[in-house]
Computed example of a mutant assay.
Amino acid sequence: MKLIECPRDAMQGLPEFIPTATKINYLNALLKVGFDTLDFGSFVSPKAIPQLRDTAEVLAGLDLTASKTKLLAIVANLRGAETAVQHPEINYLGFPLSVSETFQRRNTNQSTAEALTDVAAMHELCERTGKTLVAYLSMGFGNPYGDAWSPEIVMDFTQQLAAMGVRIVALSDTIGASSAATIAPLFSALIPAFPHIEFGAHLHTTPTTWHEKVAAAYEAGCRRFDGAIGGIGGCPMAADQLTGNMATENLLNFLAEVGLESGLDLAAFARAREEAAGVFAFH
Rank of each mutant, 00 (worst) to 15 (best):
K2M: 14
L3A: 07
E5K: 05
P7Q: 10
G13I: 07
L14F: 02
P19L: 04
A21Y: 04
I24C: 01
I24Q: 05
Y26V: 01
Y26A: 08
N28I: 02
L31H: 03
L31F: 11
K32T: 12
K32R: 15
K32G: 03
V33I: 05
D36Y: 14
T37Y: 09
L38K: 05
F40R: 00
S42T: 10
K47W: 06
A48H: 12
I49G: 04
P50L: 11
A56M: 10
L59T: 05
G61H: 11
G61R: 09
L62V: 03
L64D: 05
T65Y: 09
T65W: 14
T69D: 04
L72S: 14
N77V: 00
L78V: 10
A81I: 06
A84K: 08
A84D: 05
V85H: 04
V85W: 00
H87L: 00
E89V: 04
I90P: 03
Y92L: 03
S98H: 01
Q104R: 11
R106L: 13
N107D: 06
A113G: 11
T117Q: 14
V119K: 08
A120F: 04
M122H: 05
H123V: 04
L125C: 10
L125R: 08
L125M: 07
R128H: 11
G130V: 06
L133D: 01
L133K: 08
L133C: 00
V134R: 08
A135S: 14
Y136M: 09
F141N: 04
Y145T: 08
I153T: 13
D156Y: 07
D156Q: 11
D156K: 06
Q159A: 14
Q159K: 15
Q159R: 11
Q159S: 15
A163P: 03
G165D: 00
V169R: 13
V169F: 02
A170G: 08
S172E: 13
D173W: 09
D173Q: 13
G176L: 02
G176D: 04
A177R: 12
S179R: 07
A180W: 04
T182K: 05
A184G: 03
A184W: 12
A184K: 12
A189L: 14
L190I: 09
L190R: 01
L190H: 05
I191M: 02
F194N: 04
F194I: 09
F199S: 12
H204C: 07
T205G: 14
T206Y: 02
P207M: 02
T208C: 04
T209W: 01
T209H: 08
H211D: 14
E212V: 11
A216V: 01
A216F: 04
Y218I: 09
Y218E: 08
Y218F: 13
G221E: 03
F225T: 06
D226K: 13
G231I: 00
G233A: 06
M237T: 12
Q241V: 13
G244H: 10
N245H: 08
E249M: 00
L252Q: 08
F254P: 15
A256R: 12
E257S: 15
L264M: 08
L264F: 13
L266S: 11
A268E: 10
R271Q: 14
A272Y: 05
E274Q: 14
A276Y: 00
A277M: 15
A281Y: 11
F282I: 09
